[in-house]
Amino acid sequence: MRAEPIIKLEHVNVSLGGSMVLRNLSLEIPRGACVGIIGPNGSGKTSLLRSVLGLISPGSGRIEVMGSVPTRRSRRERQIGYVPQVRNVDREFPITVYDVVMQGRTGSLGLLRRPGRKDRQVVESCLAKVGMTDLAGKQIGALSGGQQQRAFIARALAQESSLLLLDEPATGLDIPTQQSIYELLEELHQEGVTTLTTTHDLLALDFHHFGFITCINKELVAFGPPQEVLTNEILAKTFSGFPIPLGRAAGRTNDSGVIN
């Protein structure tokens, strides 16, 4: 018997401010999969993640995450890890990296309770996973962009979720940092964590880390293993006909544009 998918979308339509951002999207993400979501800017990648989190509700269709419709209560009980797009954090905010990562424990602690020894252990191991142990005592604003991103990834890891959503985690970072993020995804995959990672930057994308690729452009263009999905035809459809240079996978495609 096939295992229940961890995320199930059925004919989902999402509108934001009057315009349709996701159209009739049906998708099933198997448990434990490492999924890459690609599409141009404005193709609804972030809206897809926010819908899975239950931060926006679909106008029609049904979304099930871990067997139920996402709500605030389910978010608190199930703790979906989330790394939002790199934004300008308030650089002056008086908070250390350690305390930012500890925020990942807020949901599982619940109201009124303070972090205990177990929470501190989780925070320390998550800091170690992203190589930020030495910077734990620094104020968040004193870090570089790549370091901040790693701190936010550590905060998502501290949620100890079996589902992790990363929105453009590698965008704007240097190659070694991007590489370390992809290695982390692989590690999480080994641990059985389901990950959804979006990107619009095909040059930065290292396809070999992903078990599945989802191409969206407001609607689903393709979903499947990279070697089936990453064809010139599908990419052209996803990116509205622009010729697409494939990043580190380039040179490994055959004449029909399929990765070998």
Binding site: L55, R72, R76, P84, V89, F93, Q103, T106, R155, Q159
Partner: peptide
């Protein structure tokens, strides 16, 4: 948490 990052606070179920 809300003062620093409202969106993430909401994601965590705050």
């Amino acid at each position: 948490f809300c003062a620093f990052d409202e969106e993430m606070a909401e994601v965590s179920g705050v």
